[in-house]
Design a protein around this nucleic acid. Structure first.
Lengths: 122, 122
DNA sequence: CCGTATCCTTAGGGATACTG
DNA sequence: CAGTATCCCTAAGGATACGG
């Protein structure tokens, strides 16, 4: 993995992958989580089997209705999030990660670790 | 890790962590890579020990001068990227990941895997 | 409860030209 | 080569009010 490039230091990381392809994959993935709220929403969803709209809203704190719903719609059309409507009154809607959506979990974990590291350096 | 929540399904992920803290870490990390180009820049830097400005620009293709330089400045002041100026003419400037910056590598790898997975589903 | 609909503001980002 | 300096514009995001 870490092959010597010069006599002095090793390359930080060689992912042993076709370069253009790799970039493309990273790009693809990062696009699906772009925006101020997407990863935080996905993170929240990853903590529960199902999550109601109102709960999500409460936990995310400062997000506006508009943003929450539009981000959820994006994630839904990307196939990362499932929306389940119960035909009851008052309305009940539950969101959850799809199988594809669960693929984001390792990313979230890595991000958590990185954030934790950032916080405690110095 | 995956404790049963109902009789039917397991919780997708319980990170066995203080919830508020966790969210905070994820948020912190995601802020430092927000923006259209940051992860792609970090990814590029992670592939090499040092990378010259012009090379970076070439590899990133469609990025504008303004964006590249401002993203690099952001990353620099976040302590993720190092800028080394050689007092020669014509000018030569090399960018590299700091030790903190290298902490992003697992995130990039996870993103790559996720992107790869997204691409090949169906 | 779960959203829409509007309006509004800012900043993210791009194009181009110029400089030490 | 490695940036600055401008100008410009769209869309991301926020606040609020209303609707099924």
């Amino acid at each position: 993995m870490n092959e010597k490039k010069s006599e002095k230091n090793a390359t930080p990381a060689n992912y042993t992958d076709g370069d253009a392809f790799f970039s493309c994959h990273v790009e693809l993935a990062s696009k699906s989580i772009s925006g101020k709220w997407k990863i935080l929403i996905l993170y929240r969803l990853s903590l529960y089997e199902f999550k109601r709209y109102s709960e999500l809203r409460k936990e995310l704190g400062s997000i506006s209705e508009k943003m929450l719903i539009s981000e959820l719609r994006d994630l839904e059309s990307d196939g990362l999030v499932n929306r389940k409507v119960y035909p009851v009154v008052p309305p009940k809607v539950e969101y959850s990660l799809t199988e594809s959506g669960k693929g984001i979990i390792p990313v979230i974990i890595a991000l958590r670790n990185f954030g934790c590291f950032l916080k405690h350096r110095n």
